[in-house]
């Protein structure tokens, strides 16, 4: 860990200003990802801006009937919130499928969105990694890439975004509230928060220096049946090999709405609206699930040890859609 300055931000606005003024700075919230990376000097902030005491830890009803989740609400609190459990069950389930109880008690909503990849080589400074050291190469491309992306990757980086929470939020059409250093606020659709790697895998989001995530908003409850299916190498405390967040509504035996988001497959939480549109109006059937999988996986590319993800997604999606429509066929 490199020596760093530490500042406790007195207000959200001050945090954003401090962040913009000190370019090599990082906000620290729960610290569960940032501190690990600082210890191995993958993250090397000169200034740490502690936002953990800011009053951004409440969950409020919005005028539109949705929820506004403060950036510092912990993963545990969010998963346990009765409104989330009732109206946004997919989110509760995704959160509880992530990390461990201890980590969820510390991990925050904002930090979870901005946690960094778990690519093995990213975590080992002795290895080339374009995300860590731009231009050094990508060790995973021809190395061990069991946990890597099959969608949205580039020849420069094939890392996945590891969050479960973000996958559920993407399916729920969440938006991210951002406060900039100049005092302005804006909201970004969750799907537009993360960028694909292209030639610049080290630039991971559309945020600017100093931009502070203050909240995530969820629109009014979508109804439907909520499923979060996470497939992993052990029963708990492992990142997703693939995950599917599904919110599906059936009317008269046909799919009325379908929201599907995927984790473990791409550098960002993945959603494919064309697939959802293709499902709407159709009666559930194995053939339909295969067509949906064909569409999701149209551009999918394995890199060796992660080739199995392609059939795995196909099978997982079919089982999730089956379960979402079960009993109503």
């Amino acid at each position: 860990m490199r020596p760093f300055d530490y500042q406790r931000a007195p207000s959200a606005q001050a945090a954003a200003e401090l962040g913009a003024a000190a370019p090599a700075s990082r906000f620290i919230a729960g610290g569960t990802n940032l501190l690990d990376l600082m210890k191995i000097e993958v993250e090397r902030p000169e200034t740490l801006i502690d936002i953990s005491r800011l009053p951004l830890d409440t969950i409020e009803q919005t005028d539109e009937g949705g929820l506004r989740i403060g950036a510092l609400v912990t993963n545990s609190d969010l998963a346990a919130d009765p409104r989330v459990r009732r109206d946004y069950a997919v989110l509760s389930r995704a959160l509880l499928a992530g990390a461990s109880g201890q980590l969820r008690n510390k991990a925050t909503t904002g930090g979870n969105l901005l946690q960094r990849t778990r690519c093995y080589y990213f975590y080992n400074p002795a290895m080339p990694c374009n995300k860590r050291d731009p231009g050094s190469g990508c060790a995973a491309l021809e190395g061990e890439n069991r946990i890597h992306a099959i969608l949205g990757a580039s020849a420069h980086c094939i890392a996945t975004h590891p969050s479960d929470m973000a996958v559920a939020m993407l399916a729920l059409d969440a938006r991210v509230e951002v406060l900039a250093a100049d005092g302005s606020t804006r909201t970004i659709a969750l799907g537009d928060l993360h960028r694909l790697p292209g030639e610049t895998p080290h630039i991971e989001t559309t945020l600017n220096d100093g931009d502070l995530i203050t909240a995530v908003t969820l629109p009014a409850p979508p109804g439907g049946r909520h499923i979060y299916r996470k497939v992993r190498d052990r029963a708990s405390f492992a990142f997703a090999l693939t995950s599917v967040a599904a919110v599906v509504e059936l009317v008269d035996g046909r799919i009325a709405t379908a929201r599907l988001a995927f984790g473990g497959l791409a550098p960002k939480p993945w959603r494919d609206r064309a697939v959802e549109e293709a499902l709407v109006g159709q009666a559930p059937s194995p053939a339909l699930w295969q067509r949906a999988a064909d569409m999701v996986l149209g551009e999918a590319q394995g890199h060796g040890s992660n080739d199995f993800k392609i059939p795995l997604v196909r099978r997982t999606l079919a089982s999730v859609l089956d379960a979402a429509c079960a009993g109503e066929k």
Binding site: Y120, G143, D233, F237, A238
Partner: peptide, 21 residues
């Protein structure tokens, strides 16, 4: 890693010991 002999999964997040579940 067969290219340089480094251990790829050298922490308890990616070396999967069985957990309680």
């Amino acid at each position: 890693d067969t290219r340089h002999g480094a251990i790829v999964n050298r922490d308890l997040a990616e070396y999967h010991l069985p957990v309680n579940a």
